[in-house]
Design a protein around this nucleic acid. Structure first.
Lengths: 149, 149
DNA sequence: ATTGCTGCAAAACGTTTGCACCTAT
DNA sequence: ATAGGTGCAAACGTTTTGCAGCAAT
């Protein structure tokens, strides 16, 4: 299930930065785009293994990094020492609220946030690259919460 | 070099949550408050070891978690799979800009940010606990940058 | 007296690395 | 032909755990 448009973006990027175009990298791209929601690098590796792919762990980690560099996916970190990725394909930018009890992740966007990072970077003498805005909170509805923990 | 005020806050907290008051925990508190800037849990452990303390790694990790719970220190995560802590003692709240090249960390505060997390939490049906706002950027002055890497 | 905390070491976890082979250029 | 990417397994660094002894309540 190949997304040709995304594949083209990746191909162009790889040429630009003089990295080789290999079938393994596109396998990882396909798998990453198929995910709805957030996933860890190792999850993706296991998933690929289960579908009989020969792609190695090293290649998965390496390729996810490349995909994040060309903005096809985003790297997220919710403070639990685990890198998560999510597809950017056809998604609007958003931030995350994480329940500290059950780990539930809710996405939101707020127009006020978007301009701040660039502005602050400039003011401090930096070129903005990306930002992360995470809210840690607790489900008000206790019954709905704790489910996962 | 004990900070009695902070120690009192910690003591009260420990009683509240029915945790024992042990000398080791106050050793960790003292060491944490003495740090200016950010530090990793293991850094603190090594530092304590070097000053002949008998406090174990497990206790350091455990205590830092407790100190974060009662807001004497903050737990930070800059996306590099390493938990960092920083003293909150007499500090105003602030956020961080991290250079993706050299790792330099700059603190800033912006009044616009502070109200947003609570407001969004309420809107989504959560009780706000904390938030993290990190900007990833590049030093404009290249000479000053790359020093560390 | 009784838990719970401690020190120690070892395990766990996600991630990165070293190496020999392979393949896109 | 040759850099560079790959698969594999083992190493890495941080964090967590299991356990026996100890000490705060």
């Amino acid at each position: 299930m190949r997304n040709e448009k995304a594949a083209e973006v990746f191909r162009t990027f790889l040429k630009q930065v003089k990295n080789r175009i290999t079938p393994e990298r596109f396998e990882v791209l396909d798998a990453a785009l198929e995910h709805h929601g957030h996933f860890g690098a190792d999850d993706l590796y296991v998933q690929l293994k289960n579908s009989k792919s020969k792609v190695s762990r090293a290649t998965v980690y390496n390729t996810l990094e490349l995909l994040a560099q060309c903005d096809l996916i985003s790297k997220r970190n919710f403070g639990d020492n685990l890198n998560r990725y999510e597809s950017n394909y056809k998604r609007q930018t958003h931030d995350h609220l994480i329940c500290v009890e059950c780990g539930k992740i809710v996405e939101f966007s707020d127009a006020r946030i978007s301009d701040i990072p660039k502005e602050i970077s400039e003011k401090l003498g930096f070129d903005m690259n990306s930002y992360s805005f995470n809210i840690f909170a607790r489900c008000k509805n206790e019954k709905e919460c704790k489910k996962r923990k």
